[in-house]
């Protein structure tokens, strides 16, 4: 069963999930449900440096949204 995640960031940046390159910011990512560590690829000019998420009960039209601020 698929769950949906949108990683918000002011610009396009590679998204790393559990350390693996998994798409990019500001589009919907389709994943299996459960716990993940989400961060962005370098440079580390964002905060927080990592989100711990528990991805469940989403749909493509209501994805989980997490946000990284640019610093």
């Amino acid at each position: 069963m698929s769950e949906y995640l949108e990683v918000l960031f002011p610009r396009q940046r590679e998204v790393l999930i559990n350390g693996d390159s998994t798409g990019e910011t500001n589009v919907i990512l389709e994943l299996e449900g459960g716990k993940y560590e989400v961060t962005l690829s370098p440079p580390p000019n964002f905060t927080p440096l990592q989100h711990q998420i528990d991805l469940r009960n989403t749909s493509a039209m209501t994805p989980m949204q997490i946000k990284f601020e640019e610093i």
């Binding site: 559990n18 993940y36 560590e37």
Partner: peptide
């Protein structure tokens, strides 16, 4: 593998 981390939560 990357997908393994966090995969063994009892509720899942």
């Amino acid at each position: 593998p990357g997908w393994y981390k966090g995969a063994l939560e009892p509720q899942d």
